[in-house]
Simulated assay, not measured.
Amino acid sequence: MEKQTRIEMSDLSRRVTIEGMMVDVQIFRFDDEPDWVIVVANESGRTNRWDEVFASDTAAMAAFQIVAQEEGLAACLCQGGELAVH
């Protein structure tokens, strides 16, 4: 019997609103992987999974906050039909 991979969600995952734009920030890792992943979704369901992975959920949230504050939430999502790469 194969072991099923489980997802560990970070307690740092949350809904963020900046300048009237709201996104859900999901930070998680698979139980068989050490690195944390960020997925950002807007209200219409458009999502962006960041290419970069992080050693901790704290590092992942810090990276999200830096991009959101310096470039805005739109930089954390799909833009112009293409995925924003982080």
Rank of each mutant, 00 (worst) to 15 (best):
T17V: 11
I66P: 00
V39S: 15
T17F: 11
M22I: 07
M9P: 02
V53C: 04
M9Y: 13
I7C: 12
H86C: 08
D24Y: 12
A84M: 09
D35S: 08
T58P: 00
F54D: 01
A63F: 09
T47Q: 14
K3I: 09
R6M: 15
F54H: 03
M9I: 11
A62T: 14
W50H: 07
F30W: 00
V53N: 01
F30I: 00
A55M: 04
A62S: 15
M1S: 12
V40K: 01
K3C: 02
R29S: 02
E19T: 11
D11I: 08
R29N: 07
D24A: 13
V23L: 07
E82M: 11
L12E: 12
A63N: 09
D57G: 04
S44T: 10
G80T: 05
E71Q: 12
F64P: 01
E33C: 05
I27C: 04
R46N: 06
G81V: 06
E82C: 11
A60Q: 03
C76P: 01
P34A: 14
I27V: 07
N42V: 00
W36P: 00
H86N: 09
V67A: 07
C78V: 15
H86G: 12
I38V: 13
E8V: 15
E33Q: 12
Q79L: 07
E2R: 15
D57S: 12
V53E: 06
I27P: 04
F54M: 00
I66A: 14
S56Y: 02
E52H: 07
A84S: 15
V16G: 01
E19F: 08
A60M: 08
F28N: 09
T47H: 08
D51S: 12
F28M: 11
V40N: 01
E52A: 10
D11T: 06
Q65S: 14
S56V: 03
Q65T: 08
E2I: 08
E70W: 01
V16D: 00
N42P: 02
F28D: 08
R6P: 00
G72R: 10
R46G: 07
A60C: 06
L77A: 00
A84F: 04
W50V: 02
Q65N: 15
R15G: 03
E43N: 13
E8T: 11
A55C: 07
V40E: 00
E70Q: 15
A75G: 09
V85E: 10
G80H: 13
Q4H: 08
M1P: 11
Q4E: 14
M9N: 13
Q65K: 11
I18A: 10
G45N: 03
E82I: 12
V25Q: 02
L73S: 06
R14T: 12
V53M: 04
A60L: 06
V23Q: 07
S44N: 06
A55L: 10
W36E: 01
N48K: 02
G20W: 07
R6T: 10
Q26K: 13
A74V: 14
V23Y: 05
I38G: 02
A55W: 02
L73F: 10
F28E: 08
A74N: 12
R49D: 00
A68L: 05
G45Q: 08
